[in-house]
Every structure is written in structure tokens, then in C-alpha cells.
Amino acid sequence: MNIGIIGAGTIATFLLTEIEKQPAENLSVKSLYVRDIDKYRKLSEDCGVQLFNHFDSFLDSDIDIVIEAANITAVQELIPRALEKKEAAIISIGALSDDTFLEHIMSLANRYNHSIYLPSGAIGGMDLIQNAGALGELDEVSLTTRKPAHSLNEQSLKQEKIIFQGTAFEAIRKFPKNINVSIILSLAGVGIHQTKVTIIADPDIQTNQHKVEAKGAFGTFSSTIENNPMPSNPKTSFLAALSILGTLRKLQSDLKIGI
């Protein structure tokens, strides 16, 4: 599978490096779409990847799938165009909190017979949540996210504080850079307006922690994860980067677990 990536930041560099280490997996990053080619010239030379700043030329290059690894604006502006020609994977899933936009790209995917892949990011258990709701009998899904106080601009806190309680729809609008995980959870489960979200600022922790809980005809489910940051960028979850690589490997594997 030949891969094209929108962006050349932490996650794109991680994918370039890790995929290059495993050439036997039939995964290869061929193209990067960037705004400034000169800025990433060395990256191109080191990794043997072609740079593009013209999106149509990028799409027409030797790639099978487009990975968005940039930001919400890139999703909104570029993914609809990408779906006309290629499969696509979206990392900045906060863009999908807009119901109209989500319906639009799903319509495009159907029209052009291309799939949209959403890596699970910094949380797990999405296959269980989807399975639990297969008959529409998933009653409740909630997310409790605990973050270092300074990352939420609450540096003066001496003890933990709940800074938000509401729906995933409300959360992503108030904290667009901090709670993307609520969107993937909503899409897997009961929807953005029904998924309950609590955000806690905690001065005593250094990593992000996410607790997912669900209840329905299947029974009950609870899962907690504490995310380590990327060694190269403390603002990016290591698991979020790994989930993209894991998704690509699943697409190539003859044994597809949890799908």
C-alpha cells in the first residue's frame, strides 16, 4: 500500500520512520503534501519521499490512501477532494463534530466507493462500543478525561477541579484541541449529543488519563488508559500515533482482529 500524508509534523515523521523500518509489510510512504516545500526538503531527501504543494498533483501521485496528519482545517478543505480519488484516514477527527460536514464526506465516500478510516487515537475499546450498539441497545456512554492542570490553563490549582461537564458536542466546541477522543467515542457509540463528557484539571498528574464507561443490553464496560506522550513531542499522545500505524497494518493484514 502506497501512502500519501497531508502534513509533515510529528505524526507524519513517526510514520515515515517506522514504516521505513519494516519494508516487508508492503507499506510505503510515497508522498507528502506540505505548504512549504523548501522547509521539508531535508526530510524528503532523508526518507526518499516526494513533496507536493499542489493538492491535485499530490492526489495523482503513486498513492493508494491519504492520511490527514495536519489539523481540522486540512480535513475540512482537503478530505472531500481526496475522497473523489482515494481512500482516506482522518486524525483530526474534531472536524467530524459538524454533522453537516460528516454527512457530506460520507456521501462522497459512497459516491466514489472509497472508505474513510478513523484510527481510535488516544483511547481503546471502540470495537466493543460498536459491537455493544449493534442492535441499538447501547444506553449510556461516558468519557472522563483527566489532564495536567497546566495543559488546561489552570496552573494555579492546588487540587483537582472539574472544569467541564456536558455532552461531547459541547466539549469539542469549548476545548477543540483537548478532547478529540470524545468524537471518536461518539461516532462509535450513541452519538455526539448523547455521549457524556467530564474534564478534570489535576495539578498532581503529568499525563492524560481517559476513562470510558458504557452500559446497555450487553452489560457494562469500563476502561481506563493513561497516555504517555510522544518522545519527540510531549503535546502528542504516543498511542494516537500508534493507532494510525496499527490501522494501516490492519488494512494490509489477512487476519483482521476486532473488525
Rank of each mutant, 00 (worst) to 15 (best):
218 F>A: 08
255 L>A: 09
180 N>I: 09
239 L>M: 12
143 L>T: 10
110 N>E: 15
191 G>R: 02
152 L>D: 05
241 A>E: 08
144 T>A: 01
89 A>C: 10
125 G>W: 01
190 V>M: 01
223 S>F: 09
145 T>M: 13
126 M>K: 06
48 G>S: 05
109 A>L: 03
188 A>W: 00
158 K>W: 10
101 F>C: 11
217 A>E: 12
34 V>W: 00
91 I>S: 12
79 I>L: 13
153 N>M: 11
222 S>I: 13
132 A>S: 07
27 L>I: 09
79 I>W: 02
200 I>E: 01
222 S>G: 09
204 D>W: 08
232 S>N: 15
218 F>G: 03
149 A>C: 06
242 L>A: 13
221 F>L: 11
254 D>M: 12
57 S>A: 14
247 T>M: 13
166 G>P: 06
40 Y>H: 14
162 I>A: 06
114 H>W: 03
111 R>F: 13
112 Y>D: 12
112 Y>S: 11
258 G>T: 10
215 K>Y: 01
76 Q>N: 15
28 S>Q: 10
190 V>Y: 00
78 L>S: 02
89 A>P: 03
79 I>R: 04
231 P>K: 11
258 G>K: 06
129 I>A: 00
37 I>E: 06
69 A>F: 03
80 P>F: 10
181 V>C: 12
21 K>G: 04
254 D>F: 12
116 I>K: 02
148 P>N: 08
155 Q>I: 15
49 V>Q: 01
160 E>F: 06
242 L>N: 12
123 I>S: 03
162 I>E: 08
100 T>F: 08
55 F>W: 09
75 V>Y: 00
115 S>E: 04
243 S>A: 12
247 T>W: 01
56 D>C: 07
243 S>D: 04
42 K>W: 03
155 Q>D: 14
200 I>M: 05
97 S>E: 05
223 S>Y: 09
40 Y>I: 09
